[in-house]
Structure formats: structure tokens, C-alpha cells
């Protein structure tokens, strides 16, 4: 099942994504993340992909869209722990995933 668990630690917010991220699920994840981001205006939003089993370009759109939102609030987005299969998709968009 696709879901996101969001934790806050001071000015840092981490969104633990899991399951399949396609256009259908990206829309649902986006709403859940943006609601929390708008409420807390975090300095850093970390998107953790370690539990993601499938992702198409809608996942790239999800990252870029959060990047825009967070930038407009004065923060940054960090992408981390993408499994190998998802790294291929990220590299097409020249997005780096940290360990």
C-alpha cells in the first residue's frame, strides 16, 4: 500500500514514502505533504524513498512541486535513500539522492 508518514523535528520535516508512486498516488501524497508543510513551514523537507517499490515520472513531478512550494517558503528539499530502481528515474531528472 502506498502511504506517507510525516515526522517533525524542530524545523526539519521528514516524509517517509512507501509503496508505488504513480500519478494516482502522487496526487494523494501531495495533498498530505502540502497540508503539513503549509502548517509548519519547515526549513528542510526530507523526502525518504527507502520504502518506495515503484515510481514513474509522476514521482519526479511530486519532488519538483514540493521543491517549488518549500522554496517559496524559504526552505529546501532533500531526497534520500532511493532504492536502485528509483535512482534510474531520478538520474533522468538529474536529481541526487543522498544516503
Amino acid at each position: 500500500m502506498t502511504q506517507v508518514i510525516i515526522c517533525e523535528d524542530g524545523e526539519n520535516m521528514t516524509a517517509m514514502l512507501s509503496g508505488e508512486i504513480d500519478h494516482h498516488w502522487a496526487a494523494i501524497l501531495r495533498e498530505q505533504i502540502d497540508e503539513r508543510v503549509r502548517a509548519a513551514s519547515p526549513k528542510t523537507l526530507t523526502l525518504d524513498f527507502s520504502g518506495v517499490t515503484f515510481m514513474d515520472s509522476s514521482g519526479i513531478g511530486l519532488i519538483l512541486g514540493r521543491h517549488r512550494l518549500i522554496n517559496s517558503l524559504g526552505g529546501i528539499v532533500v531526497v534520500q535513500k532511493a532504492p536502485r530502481e528509483i535512482q534510474r528515474m531520478l538520474s533522468l531528472a538529474e536529481i541526487e539522492s543522498k544516503e
Partner: peptide, 20 residues
Amino acid sequence: PLFTTGGEERAGLGFAVMES
């Protein structure tokens, strides 16, 4: 690559992904 008519939430990478 990157061409899109889909607005803010689309990357314009779908065809590039299919090709690669």
C-alpha cells in the same frame, strides 16, 4: 525532454522515460 503542457506538477519526462 522537459516539454510539458501539464503544468506545475508534471516533469515533462514521460516520453524520455519510455525511450530510455
